[in-house]
Write a protein that binds this DNA or RNA. Structure first.
Length: 936
RNA sequence: GCCCAGAUGGCGGAAUUGGUAGACGCGCUAGACUCAAAAUCUUGUUUUCGAAAGGGAGUGCAGGUUCGAUUCCUGUUCUGGGCACCA
């Protein structure tokens, strides 16, 4: 024995050791062969739908930040399965998008090819981690069998309108029936509020006019909007591709250009999207963000006549009570009135200003409040109540899209108006007396009005209604609810997206026949934009020109099209007759738990909520909120490592000594750094530039600098899950990601700590198995102490898993194993339930030990242990004794002990006596089972 | 600029409804085993004064409420996310 080399043991006793590589491979294979994760749409069990936001399959692959949410849902899905639920847990790919197209432009690789490669790489990485997805249900938004139904849903939007009376979407046929009967008098046109016609007039319109009118009611409609146009690149750019007003690639100027584009009339759903938030359990922060995005406000629309002109300006204000404080008006630079009202004297000034605004992005316009810009139009509006002449300005801080694109400015009550008035020396009228100090605006609603004619002496809040009533009486204004939310742009001048199933006959858009779907994306050789900013599809003339006078739409749909409904497709992914069978959508119903990043807080969630409501209104599904509850996972930040090169040399100096030299900071691959210590050999091999590198060390080590920033390939701080799974196993990796901290919280990645979790799993293994003796589990009856450890753990794990508190669950597993280790417990009656608890977290290891214990069925469907309070009940408690809130001692008392007895014993104790210094205590507070506080 | 969130040891983080701040893990420290290393086990680890006993300070910062505040309130600083064509 003695003379045997240790390696001999290792090789001969592989079964006795925690050999995670063999175990994980073995069980992943077995589960695949036994179809362990196949989910049926037909089950007597209660259903549970657990969903991840599906990834965009980028070329960079998954880094350790991505699986955080996936692991969380995987644990939850496995837990619900153990609890007896039929769990739908799926994964797919949001595969259309700009980066893939950009990559195609740069390398000539077709997006279909790169997408396929990327998906394959993602799948390999995901499989490595041991998820329980039903892969037969995988979706890919760029697959024609999927986008056939995205196109179909778009046609539903195109062929419907929102009936404000019934508060729901209806087919356009009901709208034309109404027009034929009574015109549009009872159904204001959302696209043109001035539009009014009778039944007779409607019947008199030709088809082009009729279809043009219907277009202004459709939920999917055409309109004109501005895009970022870069003449030098000849293409339309995403906001992301524009930096400081110039293109990110090349730095060319970007201007705004009006183009005909598709929109979704999401504003019709504003109120339902707002009210629907009451029915779902999202975090308060998430609901608040969506509420703010929708931005419901109540106020008034007021018409101001213009001096010496027939036109009038319509403004929207939430503060009609301040109408006597209006010192100027501002209309948006895009406002259609601007050319009409500008006086000849101001013409050249205004033109200069509009040119300047052309170069500014909306973001810049909103963010730059320090830099006040604007231009006087020369026109004057007339205050309807006192006839006062009010100068009309234009300024970039007023946006065309919100309200009416014009505001009445009240400098004493609005800080931005105040700044503007100060900057341009516009005299300020004070209507709130002492409440306005002349140095800054006061937005109060509770001041008493002065200088306000018939409102004098009134409190502002009730004055709002008085003004609105008067405006309505005078027929120059009305009460108005407004939403900040705008209709959603649904066109992209790009190739890699869903083509629109729309054809134009003599310029009039028509829906394609459903039976001709999908309209497949044609194969192209190059991805250059079409003329005048059209998408690349415009270049394929024989695809575009269907027949003489008949053309296809050349825009494609945006990234959020496919992702707005994918959760429905998972329910019935292979259906070729409908997007998902009604039986399937009725069975699975809402997503019970949806997990994804906050970066999707508004966009994606509002769009999919709207699509769900439309499909519900049209009778295609039976629920109108897609996600019953939502959990936002935090981002995992990269922790970069830096090395310091002495300027002009190949010499690198350790972080602690860098201040003694003039150095340049360089990012170094975190994978060749152990903690903060650089592997200098690996560094020399990392890049040819560094092969000659020499190092100035401290304590014999090269210490790197640390910087927290985004995880990105460019910063060399990405960590590939594959490497960690290879080194520590999937079970360790899963548990470590969870151990890092709360799922919702953002935190930096640090690979170093993973060893602790790995040690824990090895230690757990040793409770079952000894390196020499093999399995050491006994059938003895557990002691009360062992039962207490087990049941405390059952209680904690069960509760923490339900509430997604996986980090504290992992820590409880560690505590449990530590305690069982101390108790030298190797009993089946304790270890078997523990394995079941662990299954959602470390499925491979649990299944292996489960079978080593002699079980023949899979642990994936084992009965979840039940907590029994009798094992954890305490009869006494060790009370902390505080003096004035500061803990000074500890004393044990029975939990049913009498308060006065406790008080007496506490007061007579030596330590309390010392702090009392002979005085009587002012008060003694006893909280049962918690603490005792003596107030001196 | 606006909206939302966060800030606790050297590091990730823990702390029922306001009730022992620092669980668990990393790192570090000292030790056992070993020729040595790895693995494993044991010890200590907020900081400061003190040999110890014991005391002071302490949850971004400044106030407040309370017998008692990481937790509630007011103000403030910094960091992260979003702001409508990145996904």
């Amino acid at each position: 024995m003695y003379c045997l080399h240790p390696l001999y043991y290792r090789s001969s006793t592989t079964d006795m050791e925690y050999n995670f590589r063999a175990i994980e491979k073995k069980w992943q294979q077995q589960w695949q062969e036994s179809h362990a994760y196949k989910v049926s749409n037909d089950s007597p069990k209660p259903k549970c739908y657990v969903l991840d936001m599906f990834p965009y399959p980028s070329g960079a692959g998954l880094h350790v930040g991505h699986p955080l949410g996936y692991i969380a849902t995987d644990i939850y899905a496995r837990y619900k399965r153990l609890k007896g639920f039929n769990v739908l847990h799926t994964m797919g790919y949001d595969a259309f998008g700009l980066p893939t197209e950009q990559y195609a432009l740069e390398t000539g690789q077709h997006p279909i090819v790169t997408t396929e490669q990327n998906i394959k790489a993602f799948r390999e990485q995901l499989d490595n981690i041991g998820f329980c997805y039903d892969w037969d249900r995988q979706v890919n938004t760029s697959d024609p069998s999927y986008y056939k139904w995205t196109q179909w849903i778009f046609l539903q939007l195109f062929e419907s309108w929102y009936n404000r009376s019934s508060q729901q979407a209806e087919p356009v046929s009901t709208l034309t029936a109404i027009f034929e009967k009574e015109g549009n008098t009872r159904h204001i046109c959302p696209g043109d509020r001035q539009l009014q016609f009778s039944a007779e007039e409607w019947k008199g319109f030709d088809e082009a006019v009729q279809r043009n009118i219907i277009m202004q009611y459709r939920l999917g409609y055409l309109d004109y909007a501005e895009v970022n146009w870069c003449p030098a690149l000849g293409t339309v750019l995403a906001n992301d591709e524009v930096v400081n007003g110039v293109s990110e690639r090349g730095g060319y100027p970007v201007i705004k250009k009006k183009m005909r584009q598709w929109f979704l009339r999401i504003t019709e759903y504003a109120n339902r999207l707002l009210e629907g938030l009451e029915k779902v359990s999202f975090s308060d922060a998430m609901k608040e963000m969506q509420r703010n995005w929708i931005g419901k406000s109540q106020g008034a629309e007021i018409k101001f006549a213009l001096k010496n002109a027939a036109a009038h300006i319509e403004v929207y204000t939430t503060r009609p009570d301040t109408i006597f404080g209006v010192d100027f008006m501002v209309i948006a630079p895009e406002h259609e009135l601007i050319q009409q009202i500008t006086t000849p004297e101001q013409q050249s000034e205004i033109e200069k200003y509009l040119d300047y605004v052309q170069s500014r992005s909306e973001r810049e316009r909103m963010a730059d409040v320090k830099q006040i810009t604007g231009c006087f139009t020369g026109a004057y509006a007339i205050n309807p109540f006192n006839g006062r002449e009010i100068p009309v300005w234009t300024a970039e801080y007023v946006l065309a899209g919100y309200g009416t694109g014009a505001i009445m400015a009240v400098p004493c009550g609005d800080q931005r108006d105040f700044g503007f008035a100060r900057h341009f020396n516009i005299p300020i009228t004070n209507i709130i007396g002492d409440a306005f100090n002349g140095n800054e605006a006061n937005p109060t609603k509770d001041a008493i009005l002065q200088n306000s004619d018939f409102l004098n002496g009134m409190v502002m809040r009730p004055a709002m209604d008085v003004v609105i009533n008067k405006l309505e009486e005078m027929r120059i204004g009305k009460r108005q609810i407004n939403y900040k939310m705008r209709d959603a742009g649904f066109s992209r001048q790009r190739y890699w997206g869903e083509p629109f199933p729309i054809i134009y006959k003599d310029g009039i858009p028509y829906a394609m026949d459903e039976k001709d779907l999908p309209l497949e994306l044609p194969y192209v050789e190059n991805y250059k934009p079409g003329e005048e900013g059209e998408g690349p599809l415009a270049n394929i003339t024989d695809w575009v020109n269907v027949a003489p006078g008949i053309k296809r739409e050349t825009n494609t749909m945006p990234g959020y099209a496919g992702s707005s409904w994918y959760f429905l497709r998972y329910m019935d992914p292979h259906n070729n007759n409908t997007f998902a069978d009604r039986k399937a959508t009725d069975y699975w119903n809402q997503v019970d738990v949806y997990v994804g990043g906050t970066e999707h807080a508004v966009g994606h969630l509002l769009y999919s909520r709207m699509w769900t409501k439309v499909l519900f209104d049209l009778g295609h599904i039976g629920f109108d909120e897609p996600f019953k509850s939502l959990i936002n996972q935090g981002m995992i930040g990269g922790s970069s490592r830096l090395v310091y090169r002495i300027r002009g040399t190949h010499q690198f100096v350790s972080a602690g000594l860098k201040d003694q030299y003039e150095t340049d900071e360089l990012h170094v691959d975190v994978n060749i750094v152990d903690g903060v210590e650089l592997d200098t050999e690996a560094f020399r091999k990392w890049k040819p530039d560094f092969s000659e590198a020499t190092f100035i060390l401290e304590d014999g080590k090269y210490i790197c600098g640390v910087q927290l920033e985004k995880m990105s390939k460019r910063l060399f701080n990405t960590v590939n899950p594959n490497d960690l799974v290879e080194k520590f196993g999937a079970d360790t990796f899963r548990m470590y990601e969870m151990f890092l901290g709360p799922v919702e919280q953002s935190k930096p990645w640090d690979t170093k700590g993973i060893e602790g979790v790995h040690r824990f799993l090895k230690k757990l293994w040793r409770l079952f198995s000894d390196e020499q003796k093999g399995l050491i589990v006994t059938n003895d009856t557990p002691t009360p102490a062992e039962q207490k450890v087990l049941h405390k753990t059952i209680h904690k794990i069960d509760g923490d898993t339900t509430t997604f508190s996986f980090n504290t669950a992992v820590s409880q597993f560690m505590i449990c194993v530590n305690e069982l280790y101390t108790l030298k417990c190797h009993k089946r009656a304790v270890l078997e339930p523990l394995l079941i608890l662990l299954t959602p977290y470390a499925p491979h290891l649990s299944e292996e030990l489960w079978h080593q214990l002699g079980n023949t069925s899979s642990i994936l469907d084992a009965p979840y242990p039940v907590y029994d309070e009798q094992f954890t009940k305490e009869s006494a408690f060790n009370y902390p004794i505080a003096i004035n809130g500061k803990t000074r001692a500890e004393m044990g008392f029975a939990l049913d002990a009498d308060n006065s007895a406790i008080e007496q014993e506490v007061l007579s104790s030596e330590i309390v006596q010392k702090w009392l210094e002979g005085k009587a205590p002012k008060k003694v507070i006893i909280v049962k089972g918690r603490m005792i506080n003596v107030v001196v």
